[in-house]
Design a protein around this nucleic acid. Structure first.
Lengths: 122, 122
DNA sequence: TGAACATATGAACACATATTCATGTATAAT
DNA sequence: ATTATACATGAATATGTGTTCATATGTTCA
């Protein structure tokens, strides 16, 4: 294992060879950004609660708002985020809009998250 | 399907029965919060990049900083977040601190995320 | 047509968060 | 001991984000 030292943009590097090898294995920047953006959607309690609700059945906006004890506007804004991430889809029936899940991976991702947390908090 | 209407905290409810049924199926508030907190950790490009680097090998702080072309301080702060989430562990060797992954689910979660994104962006 | 209603949306505000900067701590080397 | 090094950390700052408020849009019903 090399023990080279050297500054680069004011940063000391200890294992130049390791850094180079890892650098070549890294996914492209754009993909990493997209992945982070995707997980950011799950990083909010309100959106998590909406998704868990939709695991059970499709629901209209005002029912979700009632269920979560939040304003219709707040829910609508969050549904837009979920819609943009293509995690939910919707159908209109008159003036009522019913939202439902639009992805099979959500449950799997949640379960993986739960597993980690449970093992972690022991 | 019932079509009851009624105000609750200024919110109209259309399907009272559906709301009640879903409410009973919801996980407890604390778990949903914890899960959101967990996913929040993945919702940042820097942390995602660190984790991808550590998929390859353990690395010390300054090497990670060099790899990602960021300051030592910025990396150190983010490593603290990853450490608190128990996603990485570390070992000290003199003054050098080597970080590595501390969870088997990370790769699986990332793969699920990638799958969704790939299917979505077609 | 007009009123009521379900939802969407832009702007404002409050709060969270990522990075920088300065500095502290611990270890190694001279 | 003193200096240099690798990392950690608190404070400050800038940027991002969630909710509220007001209002717009589109549909139903009288």
């Amino acid at each position: 294992m090399s023990t080279k030292h050297g500054p680069c943009c004011d940063i000391t590097v200890i294992h130049e060879d390791v850094v180079e090898r890892v650098r070549r294995s890294m996914p492209i920047e754009e993909d990493l950004f997209t992945l982070a953006e995707f997980f950011k959607v799950f990083g909010d309690t309100t959106r998590i609660r909406i998704l868990y609700a939709l695991f059970q059945t499709e629901m209209c906006v005002c029912d979700i708002a009632h269920l979560l004890n939040m304003s219709q506007s707040a829910i609508s804004h969050q549904l837009r985020v979920l819609k943009q991430a293509k995690l939910v889809k919707f159908r209109k029936e008159g003036r009522v809009v019913y939202y439902s899940l639009d992805d099979d991976h959500i449950k799997a991702i949640f379960d993986q998250g739960y597993q980690h947390i449970q093992e972690r908090d022991n």
